[in-house]
Design a protein around this nucleic acid. Structure first.
Lengths: 249, 249
DNA sequence: CCGATGCTTCGTCCGGGACCGTAGTGTTGC
DNA sequence: GCAACACTACGGTCCCGGACGAAGCATCGG
């Protein structure tokens, strides 16, 4: 019996620290979060959080996915969520109201959010797919990540008053910020448009009042004018826009 | 969020200690155990165990039922078992084989075991019920706990070569060990026969080879001769004996 | 090339808690 | 009555582990 006893105790001790419990609870909605966000939620310094996250990962409770200089942590699997939930039930906490709120936020984040300075979520993926489908963007070289804008794309962005050539030219050096690249979307596992072109598109959407930032969240709201404008410029049907923004599951 | 966060962490930390985890796992079969047993299982001293048990009880994980100078601890409710089980699943332990083994032991304990020096479990309750039903034992006074042996009972015990009068006489003093009393059975929630008469009956059963002690367990085995002998002397059918010893659930 | 940012690793401090020895309480049995 | 037993309460020691500061990698941007 002593061979597996330490395991249970070890797992439980992992959850038994207040900071780690806060981290796990914050991830109960199934979304991935960066170490910094989790540090703020847990109320401890980033260094301390890093140690906690390492322990939780080694213990098999968390999964890690690197993306650029960010590291997104998420619950390893559904079993972990079940265990946490049963502990919350023991502690007399009600998972329902909180869970409800969390899933609503999660739904909004999945629908549309900012990723650095560009648009991510289902809306971002939808726009990127449409650009590729309509031949506005073509893969550049074998990098599988960089794209070039075709003449059709140049017209589309020009209609949005975005000067593609100026962006592509960038700063004189040449090796500066990449122009149009595919950024793997977290929740959708599909690429969305990043780089200076993606940033310019997002900025234009905010300027036009098509998108509005939410308080204390990276989620963004698509306005009525935004839905109409994006549908017109990207040749999308209102149904496609609505599907992207719907907070299903 | 901070109002309920500590709760989860506190509960998990409670389970997170190796000694406490061992205690909880030992109680996973739903049976109650004394502090001393749990100390041996956990591998720490009784004093330390007492502290652990107090914390687990205060945390709502364990329930306590006093009986004489013994204190039986058991899991507070099914939610606790669910939580432990989900943690065991996370730890990669297989609840099935172990659970199987545990339930077998639990089944054997529930079927027949010793309680101090007399017979408990379903077998003990069965015998006690039969003694009362056949008019061998009658409640004595309003104590609700002490009994007297009738002439029918005197014959029954005489056939087993147990001298009821000598036992009832006891030592000269009179206020000594009680003669025939009902002892609340732990697993069955029904009384079984205790006191000097219960001890004498158990001793006779061991002498006759009707019951055999098991190694490292309070469970006892009913031999074939024992089943036949008890059925004959207590006017029970083989089916009733078999039902008591069956390891159902 | 440099600086800024996100995160991890290392080193140190320190508080909580696990453990046992001894002493105290309550129950049982002679 | 007293001794035995099961368990609890208290006091002291020790060590694990969580906290932050400073430094080290890695990535992104100019």
């Amino acid at each position: 019996m002593s061979s597996n006893d330490p395991h249970v105790a070890k797992i439980a001790a992992l959850i038994g620290d207040p900071a780690r419990a806060n981290i796990l609870k914050a991830l109960m909605d199934g979304r991935a979060r960066t170490a910094k966000e989790l540090a703020h939620i847990a109320g401890v310094s980033p260094q301390t959080t890093s140690g906690h996250l390492a322990k939780l990962s080694e213990g098999g409770l968390l999964g890690l996915a690197k993306q650029g200089r960010h590291r997104y942590y998420h619950l390893a699997n559904a079993q972990v969520a079940v265990a946490i939930e049963s502990l919350m039930a023991l502690a007399g906490e009600r998972p329902l109201p909180k869970h409800h709120h969390h899933t609503r936020v999660a739904g909004a984040l999945r629908a549309a959010r900012t990723c650095y300075d560009h648009i991510a979520g289902r809306l971002g993926v939808c726009l990127f797919d449409q650009l590729v489908a309509r031949g506005c963007l073509l893969p550049a070289g074998q990098s599988e990540e960089d794209f070039v804008v075709t003449s059709a794309g140049r017209r589309l962005f020009a209609a949005l008053q975005i000067d593609v050539d100026a962006l592509a030219r960038g700063k004189p050096g040449g090796g500066k910020r990449r122009f149009a690249r595919a950024c793997l979307d977290w929740s959708e596992r599909s690429p969305h448009l990043a780089g200076s072109l993606g940033a310019a598109l997002a900025e234009r959407c905010f300027d036009l009042g098509w998108l509005e930032r939410r308080r204390d969240s990276r989620a963004v709201t698509l306005t009525g004018a935004g839905a109409a404008g994006l549908a017109r410029h990207f040749d999308l049907t209102p149904d496609q826009i609505a599907a992207a923004m719907a907070e299903t599951h």
